[in-house]
């Protein structure tokens, strides 16, 4: 046995001769010592997200549903994009809010575009509603994860179902999906959900929340997220899906309001001169 720490446990060269790395088509030896190029490692599929979008939050109210997401795309700790739209409208009955990898978000955006286009070949108006878009998205995400080549996203699909009732359901990169009257992806699941559930914890609470209060609640959540989620922005989009009017209001470039950063001056350490 070879007792060199790097080769520990392998057959010793004295006994068996030099190991031929071509056998396994891989090598741990520094590149300069072998000429192998691309076949050093197996093909690597997506292992981590690159540019990412943070939380999407959504809540039902007595006459519809509100969904919001900020406009930032971050590259690690860098704010790479500050005018990113993460709420995607599909047809006139669906909004999809997407967090996670932005290139995958754009891929999903194109796929949803294709679905809409294909639908228009046969029919004058699109019959695809939020329920259908969610099912489609779930299948895409689940099939990609099953190929071990995931689309690195968590999505919230909101809109109208086949009976023109309000539809709200989550699906993520693994294909896991669930519905709930209030929900959030990413950091929002920890920071916004407690606030949202304070108002709407179960389906029967939905009737108790009016539109105005719901909007205020979502705005407050976006503010809390901007306070505490380092990869978030104070600029965001917000969609209001109205049940009775069957309309979707799309509000862009909203800013977090009435923020209080007084706490900042009391922070010590992190490079701020000590008193």
């Amino acid at each position: 046995m070879n007792h060199d720490p790097y080769h520990w446990g392998r057959p010793s060269n004295e006994t068996y001769g030099q190991y031929n790395y071509k056998i396994s088509n891989a090598s741990n030896i520094n590149k300069q010592f072998n000429n192998a190029s691309s076949c050093d490692f197996p093909t690597m599929l997506t292992q981590q997200p690159m540019i990412t979008g943070t939380s999407v939050i959504a809540i039902k109210y007595n006459d519809g549903l509100i969904i919001a997401a900020d406009n930032m795309g971050s590259y690690g700790s860098l704010m790479k994009i500050d005018d990113l739209e993460r709420l995607i409208q599909v047809g006139d009955k669906t909004i999809v809010g997407i967090s996670g990898d932005i290139s995958d978000l754009q891929q999903i955006e194109r796929m949803l575009d294709d679905v809409e286009l294909e639908e228009s070949y046969d029919m004058e108006s699109s019959n695809l509603n939020a329920e259908h878009i969610h099912e489609y998205l779930s299948n895409v995400l689940y099939n990609r994860r099953s190929k071990m080549n995931p689309l690195w996203n968590a999505c919230i699909v909101g809109g109208f179902d086949s009976n023109d009732e309000i539809f709200l359901k989550y699906v993520d990169m693994l294909g896991v999906s669930y519905s709930s009257p209030s929900m959030a992806t990413g950091f929002g699941a920890h920071l916004a959900i407690p606030l949202l559930r304070e108002k709407v914890d179960k389906e029967s609470d939905v009737v108790k929340l009016n539109k105005q209060d719901a909007i205020q609640l979502v705005k407050d959540c976006m503010k809390i997220l901007f306070y505490r989620d380092a990869r978030s922005l104070d600029k965001y989009s917000l969609c209001i899906i109205n049940k009775t009017s069957k309309e979707i209001e799309f509000l862009k470039n909203l800013k977090c309001e009435d923020m209080n950063w007084e706490v900042g001056k009391n922070i010590r350490g992190y490079g701020i001169p000590q008193l």
Binding site: D122, N127, E131, H132, Y136, N139
Partner: peptide, 15 residues
């Protein structure tokens, strides 16, 4: 049904 959870629209089927 599998992909969209939707009964196929009749015109899509005939096409």
């Amino acid at each position: 049904k599998m992909v969209f959870n939707r009964p196929i629209p009749v015109i899509k089927a005939v096409h």
